[in-house]
């Protein structure tokens, strides 16, 4: 049963992708290449950017900004989520703020960031404000999922507060934090490109702005592909780490 289903299981996604490319090829034949470039043109454009060094030159800015904003969000969001989960006063104090953070339109943040911190810092700031609520909310849910029975057990055996936090709360929160990180990474590369598009001269988003002005649609597709690639690589890396760290007990 297992043997017969595996080639089908791995063939299906590939067939789906192939179908998509075929449709793309057909559509590109119907329209001008400025509107829809063919897959071959996009691959050629991507190859040109990669070999010419442009891909890395622009990409490294985006990667650095994305990781900085995302790293700050994890560093600030994790303790904040723990605090909100553990302390009812902190919960009533910070939860509305987190909700407001989450529902504020991205464009407002973009404009405010340009006024407050200048153009160069906008992408990092945008990634931070869009990902920090995801981290906080997931960590908070992790804390809420703690079994009272385990806490009672620890209190009977007189385990100190620091050890309860480290050996009960943190392991319980870990899978939730990783889910939050996964959501946050999914948003990071989109947010960084959007912010770069509107605010700075370098980076994938800025290069997309240039490609748009010059009507180099194939380049636009190539940059998009690089963003998709970034998202896939970080997502795979994260699920690999999750499996290595948590699968032995989950």
């Amino acid at each position: 049963m297992k043997n017969s289903s595996w080639p089908i299981r791995s063939l299906l996604p590939i067939s789906g992708l192939a179908l998509f490319i075929v449709l793309w090829q057909i559509l590109s034949g119907l329209y001008n290449h400025v509107i829809i470039p063919s897959p071959v043109e996009v691959v050629r454009s991507f190859y040109g950017l990669a070999v010419g060094g442009e891909l890395w030159e622009q990409g490294r800015h985006s990667i650095a900004r994305g990781l900085a904003g995302f790293g700050l969000a994890v560093a600030a969001g994790t303790p904040l989520g723990l605090l909100i989960g553990l302390n009812p006063v902190a919960a009533s104090l910070f939860r509305p703020v987190v909700v407001i953070l989450q529902v504020t339109p991205l464009i407002s943040w973009l404009l405010l960031a340009m006024i407050w911190i200048g153009f160069s810092g906008v992408p990092v700031f945008i990634v931070f404000v869009t990902t920090v609520p995801l981290i906080v909310i997931n960590v908070f849910q992790g804390v809420n999922s703690i079994e009272q029975q385990l806490l009672q057990m620890a209190s009977v055996f007189r385990i100190g507060k620091a050890r309860v936090l480290r050996e009960i709360y943190l392991p319980q929160v870990a899978p939730y934090l990783l889910a939050g990180i996964s959501n946050a990474l999914g948003v990071t590369w989109k947010a960084v490109a959007m912010a770069e598009f509107l605010s700075v001269q370098a980076g994938i988003g800025a290069s997309m702005a240039v490609a748009r002005i010059n009507l180099e649609t194939a380049d636009l597709f190539a940059w998009t592909a690089s963003l998709i690639g970034l998202g896939l690589v970080t997502d795979r890396l994260l699920s690999y780490l999750t499996r290595r760290k948590l699968s032995h007990w989950m």
Binding site: F157, E167, I168, P171, W249
Partner: peptide, 22 residues
């Protein structure tokens, strides 16, 4: 010391680790 109605073990600790914990 207490044996609860449920085992109440820490899922992220090994058998020996659960004893070591207390």
């Amino acid at each position: 010391s207490y044996v609860f109605q449920e085992p109440r073990l820490l899922p992220w600790k090994t058998v020996a680790g659960n004893l070591d914990f207390v």
